Amino acid sequence: MAVREVPASVKLLAGVWAGVLIVAVTLTGTWLARSPGMNDPIAVAWPSDDELRTSGETTVLFGHQSVGTNILDGILRVYADAPVPAPVIAEVSSVEDARHPTFMHAYLGVNGEPLGKFAAFADVMDTRAAAHVDVALMKLCYADVTASTDVHPVFDAYVSTMADLEAAHPDVRFLYTTVPLTADRNWKSKVKAVLGGDDRMGPADNVARERYNALIRERYAATGRLVDIAAVESAGTGLRSEDGNVYHVLNENLTFDRGHLNEAGSEAVAAELLKMVATHSPVA
């Protein structure tokens, strides 16, 4: 059987596409491998023994979800080698009388629904267990503020909720918080994002968190009662940029999955929280 000659035009087209494929693979490999920016180790700003003593003598209510659990674990580690006893950490539902110093906490709402978390925090503040709280705060999760979030209504709802709570509970010292961040995507999450998977950890998500946190800082930094979780998490990273928008990320040295905190991260945020509790505790 005679072998048909492949037309020159077909050979040329095949060569072009092969070249395109080689370039695409090369560029993709470079994109996946390149370092997105600095992630330097950080030094934790540890509370003093006096601050730890004051925090341990303060009744605190902390509303949160999973990253909050990391922070609670960090509190116990911060106290591990301290010459003062650690506070009792207990879920609100298990506390019958918080007249004695206790670090109470409550799991708020569902991730991805920040307005529901605000309402849940207000409900917890009206429970019997919260009747003797000295200091109270709640935090959102990184999943509550993403690229699809209209941050202004969320911010407005937070401001309204906190103002209402302060009016209803004038003896409680309320603290404010920024929303946590996520770390730079690794190559697996980049591939997933290209294929359409939304892990809510991309640059556009952190850009939205940056916008929300800027509003929080503008409103509350001057009060001296802002627990800037995002600032602690982003230490040692520097700014990133996406489509002309600058943003911060969670330092990869502080996380085990690019979103939740490892031991170093939980200790760093817990240390900042404990210092703020001590500063605003009525027993100080």
Results as ranks from 00 to 15, higher is better:
113 E>Y: 14
113 E>K: 11
113 E>P: 08
114 P>Y: 12
114 P>K: 14
115 L>T: 15
116 G>F: 13
118 F>C: 11
119 A>K: 13
120 A>T: 11
121 F>R: 14
121 F>I: 14
122 A>L: 10
122 A>D: 15
124 V>N: 06
125 M>R: 11
126 D>W: 07
126 D>Y: 00
127 T>F: 14
127 T>D: 13
128 R>H: 08
128 R>V: 13
128 R>Q: 15
130 A>T: 10
131 A>H: 11
132 H>W: 12
133 V>H: 03
134 D>G: 03
134 D>R: 04
134 D>M: 04
135 V>P: 05
135 V>C: 07
136 A>W: 01
136 A>F: 05
137 L>P: 00
138 M>D: 06
139 K>W: 02
139 K>L: 11
140 L>W: 00
140 L>D: 02
141 C>P: 00
141 C>L: 01
141 C>M: 12
142 Y>N: 08
145 V>L: 07
145 V>M: 03
146 T>F: 01
146 T>Q: 01
147 A>K: 10
147 A>Y: 01
148 S>Q: 01
149 T>H: 02
150 D>T: 11
151 V>R: 03
151 V>D: 04
151 V>H: 02
152 H>L: 12
153 P>L: 06
155 F>Q: 09
155 F>A: 05
156 D>L: 06
156 D>N: 10
157 A>S: 14
157 A>V: 00
157 A>T: 00
158 Y>Q: 11
158 Y>P: 00
159 V>C: 04
160 S>A: 15
164 D>V: 01
164 D>W: 03
165 L>H: 07
168 A>G: 01
168 A>E: 12
168 A>L: 07
169 H>W: 09
170 P>H: 07
170 P>D: 08
171 D>Q: 09
171 D>P: 00
174 F>W: 09
174 F>L: 02
175 L>D: 08
176 Y>F: 08
177 T>C: 13
177 T>R: 03
177 T>M: 11
177 T>S: 15
